[in-house]
Amino acid sequence: MTEHKWSLTSSTRESRIFATLAIVAVLLLIAAPWLVSRGLIRDLFQIMTLLVLAQCWNLLAGYAGLISVGQQAFVGIGAYVFFSFAVFMPIPPALAILAAGIVAAGIGVAAASFTFRLQGAYFAVGTWVVAEVVQLTLAKQSVLGGGSGMSLPREFRETMPGFGILREMGFSKSAAIDVIAYWMVLLLCVVTILVIYRFMRTPAGLGLGAVRDNVIAARSVGVNATRLKWLVYLGCNFITGIAGALIFMQKQRVSPDTAFSVIDWSAFVIFVVVIGGIGTIEGPIIGVLIFYLLQSFLADLGPIYLIILGALGIVSILVAPSGIWGLISSRTGIVLFPIRHNLKKLG
């Protein structure tokens, strides 16, 4: 065995401080239902669902080169699978949520057998077509409520994990659902970010970084770009399906128009990733906070709000193509999720 002369390091001082702060933040978020108003819990729920979707889209578009504008297909499928179990075959809600993810990933495989033949803009259009087809098909099913959708049965609500305990602690029935959905999405959000972060530090994650930067060169040094794309696509659709189940569990109602909304589940998500900084884990986090602030101040303006968002997105692409986080990190060198492999001499 030869002596090692070099080692690899990743973490920086900022990243260690950030990790500590992040743990504190997560603990505060867990306790939030006792600390803040129900309105803010709902806002936090919305922020975190958007963050989960944005992390997934970032992985798809920012790393794997899969620019999908049809992720609403998997939000909707997840929601409908969850509601179908709730209405027709009440199983424990946690299992129904898991099933939502699995079915979304499964239908993703079928969709990919068509869309993966397309490149670039054609792929984007293809994913949207798939989403429309799924939406129109579901809207025709009278057993699923047709165009008006379904409501979450009351008895099923009460089988939610922790429902009884929260009721005893004085939460109203619908507040209890809010809190349960909030904790679940908090768990999903933390797990999603941690999994992506851990994955990016594996050799496969490094290979994905190579695919992001230059797919031809990546293949030429032996990276199986196709396999990585499939892996990312499957994983993201699984998580997106789960997110869909949780989003509509909290709303307690689902309809084709809301579940397959291209504005809510693709346009806003793309905005968040682009303005925050595509191709980084930090970007979507910054992006979702900016999006939330804009929404709080501008949502009353109606259509003008959407025009402002679109204009900001365009300005961001022209002025700062790597997003707000790209500007911050290139000026300061700060990294919150260190995934670099820095060479360090031993001894």
Partner: peptide
Amino acid sequence: QPFEKLTVLENLLVANCFGAEAA
């Protein structure tokens, strides 16, 4: 055709890991 956002070393790590199908 470098992997521009990866570091110089990471460019080699990718090649070293995937090129010879090492684990």
